[in-house]
Amino acid sequence: MTVLLTGATGFLGSRIAHALITTRSEPVVVLGRGDPSRLRSRMADALQVVGEGAFDERHGGYLRCVSGDVTKPWLGLSPALYARLAGEVDAIWHCASDIALTGERERLYRVNVHGTAQVLAFAAATPPQCRLVHVSSMAVAGARPSGRVTESDLSDVHGFETHYDASKYTAECLVRQWAERHGRPVVVLRPSIVAADRTLPEGAAGHSLSVLGDMLKAMSQEGAPGIPAQRPGARQLVLRLRVSSNASFNIVGDRYATEAMIRIGHDRCDQDATVHTFHVVHPRPTPVRDLLAVIEKQYPGLRIECADDDVPDPTDAERFVTASLTGFLRYCRHQRVYDCSNATAATPGLADPAPIDAVFLRGALGFACPDAHPSRTS
Rank of each mutant, 00 (worst) to 15 (best):
F249H: 08
A346T: 01
G115T: 05
A44M: 11
I227Q: 04
Q129H: 14
T9F: 05
R235I: 00
R319E: 11
P287Q: 15
E151C: 04
D254H: 11
V359W: 10
E180R: 15
R38H: 14
G213P: 06
P348T: 08
D308Y: 09
G366T: 01
T162I: 01
A364E: 09
L85I: 07
M219R: 07
G159C: 04
V70G: 07
F11D: 10
D310P: 00
R110N: 04
R235C: 05
D272V: 11
G34Y: 02
H276C: 03
C65Y: 01
R235Q: 14
D352H: 08
A372P: 03
Y164H: 11
F249K: 01
S41K: 13
P283L: 02
V28D: 04
R240L: 05
P232Y: 08
A345E: 12
P232V: 04
F328I: 13
G363H: 12
C173K: 14
V50P: 08
C306G: 10
G61T: 07
V113A: 04
R255P: 00
T344P: 00
D339I: 09
R198K: 14
V66I: 14
T377D: 13
D153T: 08
C369P: 01
A179Y: 00
H163S: 10
P283H: 05
L101P: 03
S341K: 12
F367G: 06
V311Q: 09
H94K: 06
I16A: 05
F360S: 01
D69L: 05
V294R: 11
V194P: 02
R242Y: 03
Q129E: 15
A195H: 01
T347R: 02
P232N: 11
P300L: 11
P285F: 02
H182W: 12
N342W: 00
S244T: 02
A205K: 09
S378K: 06
H282E: 01
A354L: 07
D352C: 02
D371A: 07
S208W: 02
L365I: 09
R105A: 14
Y62F: 15
L291W: 05
R330N: 13
V70T: 15
R148G: 00
L216C: 11
V288R: 08
A234C: 14
K297Q: 15
E104P: 00
D197K: 06
G142S: 02
G213W: 04
V135I: 15
H163E: 12
I21A: 07
G61A: 04
S155D: 14
D214S: 14
H266I: 08
S155M: 01
D308K: 08
P314D: 06
P73F: 13
H182D: 08
D35S: 13
E202P: 00
L12F: 15
T258W: 10
E318Q: 09
Y109G: 00
P145Y: 07
D290K: 15
R58T: 09
G233K: 10
P232A: 10
P128C: 04
F11A: 09
P228S: 10
T322H: 03
F160H: 14
H334C: 09
E318K: 09
D339Q: 13
L63T: 03
C340Q: 13
E202G: 03
M1G: 13
V111N: 05
V111R: 11
V89F: 06
G301N: 14
A293I: 01
F320A: 08
Y331R: 15
P145F: 07
Q335T: 13
I262C: 10
H18Q: 00
V70S: 02
S136E: 04
Q48V: 09
V337D: 01
R289G: 00
G7A: 06
V133D: 04
